[in-house]
């Protein structure tokens, strides 16, 4: 499942930045094309695409540094949503 999440996140990033060739563990902030607006779009994409809410305490840079970290974040939030239901 996390693999599917990673694929969708990668597609979103490369859709905006076709030049990006990303592995799951690559630090996307080191690539130079991430700015504050794109970071916000990334948060909103994750919330919308995976039907999760990202509370403020999850808005930490390490949660968005790599595709793998974002996939884990999605898994964590989906689990939290399921347990609350």
């Amino acid at each position: 499942m996390a693999h599917t999440h990673a694929t969708r996140i990668r597609e979103f990033i490369t859709g905006r930045h076709p030049q990006a060739e990303l592995t799951d563990t690559q630090d996307i902030f080191s690539l130079g094309f991430i700015n504050s607006l794109f970071a916000m779009e990334l948060v909103m994409f994750i919330e919308k695409e995976f039907a999760v809410t990202l509370p403020n305490d999850e808005l930490r840079i390490d949660n968005f540094r790599t595709i793998a970290a974002m996939s884990e974040l999605v898994e964590r939030r989906l689990a939290a949503t399921a347990s609350a239901a």
Binding site: A39, E58, L59, R60, I61
Partner: peptide
């Protein structure tokens, strides 16, 4: 100092 769990 960067995004530290602070919302907009």
């Amino acid at each position: 100092g960067g995004p530290l769990g602070v919302g907009w």
